[in-house]
Amino acid sequence: MRYLKLIKVFIKTSAQETLMYRANFWVSLLHAFLNLIVAVLALVILFGQTENLNGWNLSSTLSLLGVYLIVSAIRNLFIGPSLEALVGLGQEVWNGQFDFTLLRPVNTQFLITFRIWRLFSLIDLFLGGAVLLYSIFQTPQSPNLLAWLLFLLALVAGILILYAILLAFTALVFWNPGYLFTWVFDAIFQLARYPLGIYPVGVRIFLTWIIPVGVITTIPAQVISGQTGAPIVFLILAASVFLFLFASWLFNKGIKQYHSASS
């Protein structure tokens, strides 16, 4: 309850910080639409040349795009900005402001996960949802309630995996503030715009087992278009919980390292 209240305060404060720069609203709106147009245009150009991309047609690829936009919007809403405040040159771990975070009588992992919100990402979230719904209404038979439920589970698992990867990479900063794995991850995450199946075998293995970016978007999109079912969903749900636990463990280990490191 206390933590929910804290989240509320963080959201409120972030909103306030955002409102300090009012022009940003229009800029973000512009960016959101631009991103959407670019992404859709890319697919239209592609499917103008071919009808079928390794079993994916325009509408199922659009669903995937919708999932991708939703997942990235949630990442940009709070996970990304909160974690990014730690990583990189001149950021908290580097300049020692992280000390203040550690002195707070609140769970540190909670604090670094939820404290900064970029509310403009709600626009992207909305647009992503719209793309997803549009693509689903394009297909002849719409998914039933069970499919929607499985889809939601798969989406949650995907977001949890994304969070776990980002948290684990963030934790590495405690060993060396020069590590920029979260940035590398951001680059790799762009590969999740397209179905896992289009990539060469090596890349596919990498995106499934090493840095499971492909799983995050491809499986929810497959679930909603009926290409895959419950067993896979529960499998990635289990995997996501495991990854979450591992990342939390690594993060706490990182804090220990910070406590014993030279100032």
């Binding site: 404060t13 306030q16 910080e17 300090m20 720069y21 300049n95 020692g96 402001q97 000390d99 203040f100 002195l103």
Partner: peptide, 15 residues
């Protein structure tokens, strides 16, 4: 406890 660091700030910059 509380700690004040003369060269670091815990204030939010923009508000």
């Amino acid at each position: 406890i509380s700690m004040v660091l003369g060269n670091k700030s815990q204030m939010l910059w923009d508000i």
